[in-house]
Nucleic acid binder design. Sequence first.
DNA 1: CGATAAATTGAGTTTTGTCAATAAAGGTGG
DNA 2: CCACCTTTATTGACAAAACTCAATTTATCG
Lengths: 271, 271
Amino acid sequence: MATLGLSVHDKNLEQILRGGAVMKIAQTIHIDRQCHACDPRGGCLGIQLLDNPDICEYLKQAKRISRKGEHVFREGEVADAFFVVRSGSLKSYLVTEDGEEQVLGFYLPGDVIGLDSTELQHRMSSAITLETTSLCRFLYIYLADKAQGSNLLRITSEQMQRDHNLVLLLARKDADGRIASFLDDLACRYRARGYSASAFLLSMSRQDIGCYLGLAVETVSRTLTRFQECGVLQVNRREVEILDHATLRKIAGIRGDRFMECDKDVELDSA
Amino acid sequence: MATLGLSVHDKNLEQILRGGAVMKIAQTIHIDRQCHACDPRGGCLGIQLLDNPDICEYLKQAKRISRKGEHVFREGEVADAFFVVRSGSLKSYLVTEDGEEQVLGFYLPGDVIGLDSTELQHRMSSAITLETTSLCRFLYIYLADKAQGSNLLRITSEQMQRDHNLVLLLARKDADGRIASFLDDLACRYRARGYSASAFLLSMSRQDIGCYLGLAVETVSRTLTRFQECGVLQVNRREVEILDHATLRKIAGIRGDRFMECDKDVELDSA
DNA sequence: CGATAAATTGAGTTTTGTCAATAAAGGTGG
DNA sequence: CCACCTTTATTGACAAAACTCAATTTATCG
């Protein structure tokens, strides 16, 4: 299966990268000859990022070739590296709660894939080759040294994860799902900040909400009204109170289960 | 207007940040008392990112308060800093070719805004407050030192910009616009890599394209067929040849101008 | 207190998704 | 190397979700 992923040599390479004692390969300085595929993006990323002569040996060993349909990494795996595409192509995707797939992007030679998770985190998306593909693998751990404790990486990857969730929402969810996801997200963020997750004030207008979720203002309004009629929440202008968070989550997550009529009971998975 | 944006003190602060000689303020070490708003996200980001005692003085001066509806930054401006929300809330957005606005995200206390552009680059989005809001401002230049020449920042911000374009596409464009944007993007990326921008092979299936663009496979197929009937492109399975790139771009950019009938001439803005 | 902006609600239209059937391509094994 | 099977793509008919247009009500701000 996975022809990707560094083998037992990882540890040694890591030592080389982290300024280890090994000082051998000074003659492999012409690394760009071996990395011509990355030229279009300003030359070998390895050299750009890791200006270390020892990197040459590392790059030679970091190259991997995958055949069509092989995973480079999968959602949930522990992430320790990102990749630069040398040749071929890939797609990254995530899987919705109901098992549907959402493609997040396609990657061509020179592109970087796998930056939406940082060291010690788990992959937030999967990546699979679309054809025979050659990749260069870079450990986060090295960047972390440069980026001072990986806080910067953490922040940027969080931003990416949020963006990806928005993409998922826009591409796969209907109006109900989008509004519910939006409210659930807000609630969670308020809770994380020590505020109430069930009652809060919207700081943005209906216009803004619609503009964010790719919906017309009228649809936002109607959907909120319907949610209220169904007892999921109480809404008055900017004031929102979530009465049935379980149902809200259910609407947010699952695309198939529509939430049309008030008399039609929606099965809850809690209580 | 802009109560944000550091004044003439910038230069001094920058020197402090970059490890300048000034060693005064050692008593202001209890910075977290002043930054309680950031606690929910793991404490003051300034201390996390810039573990420098001198940072305290900087943070004191980096704080700014904006009233509702004020821009923190605008698309196109030269970017030299990012911000942490201390209190209040903001939205970030970008403007489509036809002047419509696409909200990219809402930001609450503790959130980081403005990382989708790096030093020397221009802002790729705008940010405006939704209410009275307090922010902490951080210069990229300091991160750049840590992140080794800002290459990491450049790469992550490129990824974010691509994500934001996808969001824009999903939220504001119809099927025609999405397919056209998708093809135009591919063409540009191939050109940037030295390949032909007018004729290429799709490495992904119709399924993947639909999954990426939030469309059903059938819609992808139908749209491509219609584009071909209109003479915009030639398509045969995975082979694509763009015959009229100007029109393709026109379809990609503008939401209003539908592209329905073949006999209806579409005005070109070139030639 | 009036004027402007925001929000709600209704009716009709349209784009796109779903279901279904067919055609073509690619891969596998005899 | 060919036949078969599976996957991928195309095309048509219908249904439905969401948009647009329009009118009304309710806030918000000066």
